[in-house]
Amino acid sequence: MRSVEADAELSRRIIEELRARDALKTQFLSNISHDLRTPLAAIITHAEILREGMLGELNVRQRDSVSGIVNGGQQLLDMIDEILTYVRGEGDQIALTRTPFSITELVDQVCVLNQPLATKRGLTCERIGGEEMPAVYADRDKLKHVLGNLIGNAIKFTPDGGRIWIIVSRRGAGGEDLLVEVGDTGRGIAPDHHELVFREFAQVDSSPSRPHHGTGLGLAIARRFVELHGGHIWVESELGKGSRFYFTVPLVPAP
C-alpha cells in the first residue's frame, strides 16, 4: 500500500513538472514573438518606402495596396507586442514605475490617438469630468495601456455612428480611489460572459469566422495592470444595451 508521504511526493513532482513545462512554453512564446518582430518590422518599413514614393511615384491603386501592407503589418505587430507584454507579466518581469501625472491629460491623449479610427467609423469619443482630480501617482505607461485597450475595444465593438465616453471620477467615502468608466453604445456583452472577457485567450466568440480577431489577451493584461496597482476592473453590460467598463486605482500620495 502506498503511503500518504509517497502520494504527496508524487503530487509535488507532478506539480513541479507542470510548472517547468509551463515556464518552457512561456519562454518559447517570448522568443518566437521577439523573433517575429524583426522581419515584420522590415516588411512594414520596406512597404513604407514604396508608399512614400521613394523608389518612384505610385498610382492611387498601387498606393492603396501598399498601404494595406503597412496597416496589416502594423496590426500584426500590435498583436505580437500584446503577446510579449503578457508573457513578460507571466515571468513576473512586471514592476510598477510610479510617477505623478494628470489622469485627464492621459485620457485625452489616448482619445486623440484613437481619434482617426473613431472618426473613420463616425464614432464620437469624449471625456467627461475629472478636471478637479489631483495628480495620480501611478504607472503612467500601464494605465495608458489599460485605457488604450478599453477605448480600442469600445471602437471595435460599437457600430458606426455610435458614442463612446470616458468618465473620470473618485470613488469611496473619502474619494480614496480613482474611478474610470469607459462606456459605449455597442452590441453589449451577455452577463454570463462578464467574467470570461477578462480571462487569457478567451473571446466571447471564438469561432474562426468571428468578425473581430485578436490575441484574446488585451483585457487579461488590463486586469493584471489594474490589479498590480491594487485596483479592480469589471464590466456592466447587457446584450444590445452597450457596455460600461470600470476600473479603480487607489490614490496613493507621491513620496
Binding site: T38, P39, A41, A42, I43, T45, H46, I49, M54, L55
Partner: peptide, 15 residues
C-alpha cells in the same frame, strides 16, 4: 544584424 532592416534604412537615408 537584420539585412532586411538595414537595407530598408539605407534606402530611406540615401533618399
Amino acid at each position: 544584424d537584420s539585412l532586411l532592416v538595414s537595407s530598408a534604412f539605407e534606402v530611406i537615408f540615401e533618399d
